[in-house]
Design a protein around this nucleic acid. Structure first.
Length: 302
RNA sequence: GGCUCGGUAGCUCAGUUGGUAGAGCAGAGGAUUGAAAAUCCUUGUGUCGGCGGUUCAAUUCCGUCCCGAGCCA
């Protein structure tokens, strides 16, 4: 990585956009056409067994082009953006066929890959647990004061406990200041190692609504309930990925004995909310080439 | 037919001992550096079921009617 010259034969295409926008189908078609590979960058499709609810590619689809980083993380392991970067770059050291179509709607991971992440040494789990206990017993006030004292430029809100704990963890364990790490090119310059473009997919809300409704019905027919129940029965109810759209609602359905109609409406609604958040994420990225300009792909790959 | 309890924001409901009302959810916008499909922030005027009455003032009290649920005939 770093300042090394990029290999002109190794090109990547980020295929981004909200869920249910048709990214995967297009990527598959292009991977076949250009004899490339598909790499997952969806934060739920990493996990083994979360297939129906995450709308992961089917076996039939996977046979049409090489697919990587799908269904490879076993419960109860939980992925992180940092581990994803390692896995991704390890993959590029193999004889994987370029161009790589990197497909997914997880803006945070896309950003991590594209812009890099500052390097923080691994922090032992108990260290965070202690901070979380402090938060639970005394509330966020003291931790927030500590953050403001050490990192006055931090934009973290006092109620955003997850980010607050993470920031305090970095400050206390490493002595480093998160917003300085982020702003300093010395600590944060590991940008993407290959030539790339980003192709985006999107629709108007009403189009998504129709797509999402039928997609939800298909998920229920295909057995999202059974899939979820399998993890629940193995004691993985608190596994973070099961707190994602589709699984979250199914767990509630199982726990509270809701109707199937409730399930269908709940998943559809959550999915629409997800789409809205994804749109917000991608809206600010003015380097995305929207799919109606997709001839830019052939230009890029020529 | 009688009695009881309800009828308040798109939904579920709170509240006003009379001075025209507020939460959660949904919706809209935004943030996002190792959980991210997560987490967090901002954003709430609605004939307070209709009509009359009492009152300086009624969504709040009284009467009446309509609608819903339950109980008794």
């Amino acid at each position: 990585m770093g300042a090394s010259i990029k290999d002109p034969k190794k090109k990547c295409i980020f295929v981004v956009g909200p869920t249910a926008s048709g990214k995967s189908a297009w990527a598959l078609e292009m991977a076949r056409k250009y004899n490339g590979s598909i790499v997952n960058i969806d934060s739920v499709q990493f996990y083994k067994g979360l297939l129906i609810g995450s709308a992961a590619p089917t076996e039939a689809e996977k046979m049409q082009a090489p697919h990587y980083l799908y269904s490879y993380v076993d419960a109860p392991r939980e992925m992180t953006a940092g581990e994803y970067l390692k896995d991704f770059y390890a993959l590029t050291q193999t004889d994987i066929k370029f161009p790589l179509f990197i497909v997914g709607g997880t803006g945070f991971y896309i950003q991590a890959l594209e812009k890099g992440m500052f390097n923080v040494e691994p922090i032992p789990e108990h260290f965070r647990k202690d901070i979380e206990e402090e938060l639970a017993s005394k509330g966020p006030g003291d931790l927030f004061d500590e953050l403001m004292l050490k990192d006055p430029n931090s934009k973290i809100h006092i109620n955003d406990h997850y980010r607050l704990v993470r920031a305090i963890e970095i400050i206390r364990y490493t002595g480093q200041i998160p917003s300085e790490l982020k702003a300093n090119p010395e600590t944060n310059k590991n940008e993407f190692a290959f030539d790339y473009i980003k192709v985006g997919f999107n629709f108007e809300k009403n189009v998504f609504e129709g797509n999402v409704k039928s997609r939800t019905e298909k998920m229920i027919e295909a057995g999202i309930v059974e899939e979820t129940l399998g993890f629940k029965n193995q004691g993985f109810e608190n596994w973070a990925p099961l707190n994602s759209v589709g699984y979250k609602e199914t767990l509630k359905y199982l726990r509270e004995g809701k109707s199937q109609q409730w399930l269908s409406e709940a998943i559809t609604q959550s999915t629409m909310k997800l789409i809205k958040k994804q749109k917000t994420w991608f809206r600010r990225d003015n380097t995305i080439l929207w799919s109606n300009q997709s001839d830019s792909l052939s230009v890029f790959l020529s």
